[in-house]
Amino acid sequence: MISDLRFRGAGWGKRLFIFLMMAIMTIYVLLILYPLFNMVISAFKTNREILTKPFGFPQSIGFKNFHTVWVEKGFDRYFANSLLVTGVAMGFVLLFGSMGAYGVSRYRYKANTLVYMLFLSGIMLPLKAAIIPLFIIVKRLGLIDSRISVILIFIAMGLPSTVFILSGFMKGIPLELEYAARIDGCNDFQIYRRIIMPMTAPAIALVTIYNAVPIWNDFFFPLVFLQSNSRKTLPVGLSTFFGQHATNWSLLFTGLSIAILPMLLMYIFMSRYFIKGMTAGAVK
């Protein structure tokens, strides 16, 4: 393409411009990668090494720290809780969200817009601002310190964007397919299940990442609702852990590595999906 920024055939001014810009971008790349690299090698260092040789390599590589954090400090539990909470919440977000999107986009009726607006109301409202009533509601339901409380809130958090993205997608599926299925004797649920859902698969992948990442990372709601150590999710567990070992940097870097690396690994293998999914709400 003619308008590409390329060195070849460019004048000196343009070459300098490209070079400068690449330098700026490279600096940011280093600012991202080095701190992460330092975090991982610090997990292998002793506290003394971290303080005296902050840029040096560890003298020996041992996984004792990782074992301590994972087993004794309960990160295995935190991890399992995060998986459970995110998995269950996402399951319901996708089920109820796709059903809601189907009910909004595939039928014509008077209250259609109203139902759609009710679903969408959650997109603009900051749910954190409602923490006091949420606390009162969760208490009434007897769900304080139960993982169900955060699961329910995460479902509510995920539904608006899911209905928004999926209904937009479902509107584009031709009605003729539906008529054909109806003639074959399918009822509405079978049409949803067998015709519409398989065709919506790409959008489902999108909303899964769009919602699962923030849910996995969420701190605020588990902080408020989960008190028992055995029920905490990874971000809250990490916070508790930091409170207890404030001076043991070697251990802290190990905890951080355990919290951060799984996401990084997933990203390396599926970066395209992550980029597409995470920006789905802001890119049309």
Binding site: F96, M99, G100, A156, L159
Partner: peptide, 9 residues
């Protein structure tokens, strides 16, 4: 179709 989602929202 819409009730479960609407109830939670």
């Amino acid at each position: 179709f819409v009730t479960p989602g609407l109830m939670i929202v």
